[in-house]
Simulated scan of single mutants.
Amino acid sequence: MAHEVQTDLRVRRTHHFLQEAMIELITEKGFESITVGDIAERAMINRATFYRHYQDKYDLVVKIFEEAANHLVEDMKPFHKDIDPGEKEENLVGIWSQLFEHVAEHARLYRAMLGKNGSPWFAARMREHTIKLMLEKERRWKHQVEPSQPIDPAMPPELPVMQLSHVLIGTIVWWLESEKRYTPRQMATWFYRFAFYGYLSARGYEVPLPGKDR
């Protein structure tokens, strides 16, 4: 047991060193110019150690977001149609706060990857992963919560999810550029109210607005 704990701590420490090295290098020279050798040298580890943990530099950065997003979506549960709207909002805002807290914790990484010296590929991958997770989650919900008649039956189900993913990335970028003057909870509340009422309505769910009687 002690050996497993020691191994886990060593892995986490290695991940931390690699992430910090990558962030520093992105800030200095931009993501596209960085090599695995650069990251390993800055982290003071050898290339073989790097490849034991990640496939390449792309795998390194995207795993950070994917792990956080996976946990976030797993926490989401369907709601019965009769649930109090305020209770539902409070729950979902709390869940999305986790994502914004994750972004705050790794602010240097996201600012570097989504900023002017960052990588369009990373933003695209964040959107793609968000779309994939949300569509999968909705498929799991279908047997528990049935939508009302869609506003536009011809609308492809992936379209509102794609729009939602762009809103999410845009919200994160804006928050980082504002130097996080607002709390994760505030950002989660504003993101939820702006994005999800429109998203769920487009998907055909009955969505009472916050503060409004049913």
Rank of each mutant, 00 (worst) to 15 (best):
F191T: 11
A43Y: 12
D75W: 01
R127P: 02
E206G: 01
K29W: 11
A40R: 14
Q98T: 08
L168A: 07
K180S: 04
A195V: 05
K212A: 11
Y51F: 15
G37P: 00
A123T: 14
H166N: 06
R125Q: 15
H53M: 14
R181N: 07
E87A: 11
I23W: 05
Y197S: 07
L168K: 09
I39H: 03
L99N: 08
I83D: 01
N117V: 11
H71T: 15
Y192H: 05
D38H: 10
T27Y: 04
F17W: 14
L99F: 10
L133W: 01
M126T: 11
P147A: 06
T183H: 03
F196R: 09
Q6L: 03
E90P: 00
L92C: 00
L135G: 02
M126Y: 04
G170V: 09
D38E: 13
P184D: 07
P184L: 03
M155E: 08
A21E: 10
D84T: 07
E20C: 13
V207E: 03
P85K: 12
F17C: 06
F50R: 13
N46P: 00
V103I: 15
Q55I: 15
D56R: 12
G94P: 02
S165V: 07
W175S: 02
L99A: 10
P160M: 10
S33D: 11
L176N: 13
R127N: 02
S148Y: 02
Q144H: 08
D82H: 07
H129V: 05
E28Y: 07
R203K: 12
F79L: 02
A154S: 14
K57D: 09
I64D: 13
T14N: 09
K116S: 15
Y182W: 11
T14I: 11
G198V: 03
K180C: 04
